[in-house]
Amino acid sequence: MADFLRNFGLPTVILVAEILAIIVPLLLAVAYLTFAERKVLAAAQLRKGPNVVGPFGLFQPLADGLKLLMKETVIPTGANRGVFIAAPILTFVLSLIAWAVIPFDDGMVIANINVGILYLFAISSLGVYGIIMAGWSSNSKYAFLGALRAAAQMVSYEVSMGFVMVSVLLCVGSLNLSAIVEAQRTVWFALPLLPMFIVFFISTLAETNRSPFDLVEGESELVAGFFVEYSSMTFALFYLGEYANMILMSAMTTVLFLGGWLAPFGWMPFTGALGHVWSMFWFFAKIAFVLFCFLWVRATMPRFRYDQLMRLGWKVFLPLSLFWLVATAGFLVTFGLLPGQG
């Protein structure tokens, strides 16, 4: 029995503790991201934003969460019950499980798998299912139209995202996320791959269905899009999933292009435990910066028209990323810089 506990129990407890150590701060971050969004939008529009609940309105997310919890879960009569309930759960779960491979610091990662970036890509490409299932099972034309838009939009932008990732891989020679960060010690990939960085950032906006690509919700024509029939916790799960996905995509941008946990110019004044804190501080600071860009774009840009969205994805980003991929490969081979070569 003692043997059993040592072999099974202890690793399980450690794993659960690690998972909780990521998920609890993540959910807190999601809550305060909604608050930050309202504050940033308010600042951009010369308003004050939420400022009533608690000091500076800091308890507003808690009040919002409580309000959502107290509401009634309404399931429409014509809805396909099982799929209707499964859709928000799927969205929420997918936004959490991707965090298993994100490296917060050297060695600080739950699953340091060899194909980390493919795993992230796979998880992000699954995100479309939550939306399609929600749209179809709601048995409402607005929700269904929103879901169809989402499917076309997310599949389109995934293609150019894939090419961007491949061009990063070419420079690194590994699919492991920690190796990708380590490869950026000399220079962050955002500089040599600047066009790819921009394509990736805009694609993440489309992939997370954020403004200016939030046609999936399109409240001006589709009421609220795919989640129009959802209420209470089922709605809250979609909401949490969307914001957790935003943070995830920011973390992905940070790892791929902004040097992950590396401080700028290799600035490393601390060692030991304080060094870890220092690295993680930079990781979170970069994520926060990318998130601010998400909110900034939302405050600045009007929504795209649907045909323009598709044109941008297929006729601009796809050729551009394909060309840049070939150019990167050609450059690396010509100058013998390809990892593993020579």
Binding site: L118, F121, A122, S125, L126, F144, A151
Partner: peptide, 24 residues
């Protein structure tokens, strides 16, 4: 692991989405 991820990306992430799209 590579085949597993490619299976998810290609079949689940792209092919099955189109299936679902058409069937719906």
């Amino acid at each position: 692991e590579f085949l597993a991820m490619i299976l998810v990306i290609v079949y689940v992430g792209a092919v099955a989405v189109l299936f679902l799209f058409v069937v719906m």
